[in-house]
């Protein structure tokens, strides 16, 4: 029962909150590309600091984000170990026939840093943009696909409905989990089988509820004559302002300058 969910939109009026969703989507994409391309430590650290600065300036709860990052530590550790053992190079530790290499450790650490940056970047996007704005932004970028007869509006409708129901789903999951705990489910049992069975007791009712809700929603949409037309009203409400141009310029410079520098410095 945390109350606040990771990635949930947090109301705010910071500069980042006010940016156009399209700006934020482009900036995130650029950041992802630069993180993927660069393997320079300094550049990655610079990006990490930038993310932290953005989180602080948009008044998101940094402690909460760091705490939730700590929860995926196992995943990060496994990434590191795999890299460390599977990369050929100078061995530092040998266990049986496989050995941990210096190169592997470095590559692994870089990858962890990359994952952390990507994690923060996507959280900033999700936590400062309302689901409605986010899906409108995505719809805007998918528009060209509509020319190829792809059902873009259906896709974005699905997207915005899932954004809408994700928090509800989490909330329901918490309630059902608590209800099963009240009947003695052991979610923190050391035995894996017991744990899996306990989670089945949450997933099954949750699934059932989601399916019946989906059926209800479909019927409600049908009965109100839902057809997949582009939502011009929503689309036209998007407006790029001066701050958007500034933000785009800033991120482009960082990416355009940063990537060559980090490749050259290698």
């Amino acid at each position: 029962m945390g109350g606040m969910k990771l990635g949930q939109y947090i109301y705010g009026d910071s500069m980042v909150h006010k940016l156009d969703p399209r700006t934020k989507i482009i900036c995130c994409t650029l950041a992802v590309i630069s993180v993927m391309v660069s393997i320079n430590w300094y550049y990655l650290f610079f990006l990490l600091l930038l993310m932290v600065a953005i989180i602080i300036s948009s008044r998101l709860n940094l402690k909460f984000i760091l705490k939730s990052m700590y929860q995926i530590k196992t995943f990060l550790l496994i990434t590191l170990l795999f890299q460390a053992f599977l990369t050929p190079g100078q061995a530092v530790l040998t266990i049986g026939t496989i050995s941990m290499t210096r190169e592997g450790l470095i590559l692994g650490s870089i990858n962890i840093l990359r994952l952390i940056i990507l994690f923060m970047c996507s959280l900033i996007l999700l936590m400062t943009t309302t689901p409605m704005k986010l899906s409108t932004g995505i719809e805007y970028f998918l528009q060209p696909l509509g020319k190829l007869n792809m059902p873009v509006h259906n896709f974005t409708t699905i997207l915005s409905i899932s954004f809408r129901f994700l928090p509800t789903l989490f909330e329901e999951a918490t309630i059902i989990k608590n209800a099963q705990k009240s009947r003695g489910s052991e979610f923190d049992s050391p035995q894996l089988m017991v744990k899996i069975k306990s989670y089945a007791a949450v997933v099954i009712p949750l699934f059932e509820a989601s399916l019946s809700r989906a059926a209800d929603l479909g019927e409600a949409m049908d009965s109100r004559c839902y057809t997949s037309h582009p939502n011009q009203l929503r689309m036209n409400s998007l407006k790029m302002k001066g701050q958007d141009v500034l933000a785009l310029l800033f991120v482009s410079v960082i990416v355009l300058a940063g990537v060559p520098i980090s490749i050259l410095m290698k």
């Binding site: 059902i176 608590n178 209800a179 009712p205």
Partner: peptide, 25 residues
């Protein structure tokens, strides 16, 4: 504790198993 709308927490394949879940735990 019986939750609000406890019917949403049912997950077993039979009524018997559902009621037996607590005692088995």
């Amino acid at each position: 504790l019986v939750f609000q709308y406890p019917e949403h927490q049912i997950f077993q394949i039979s009524v018997y198993d559902e009621v037996a879940y607590g005692p088995r735990n």
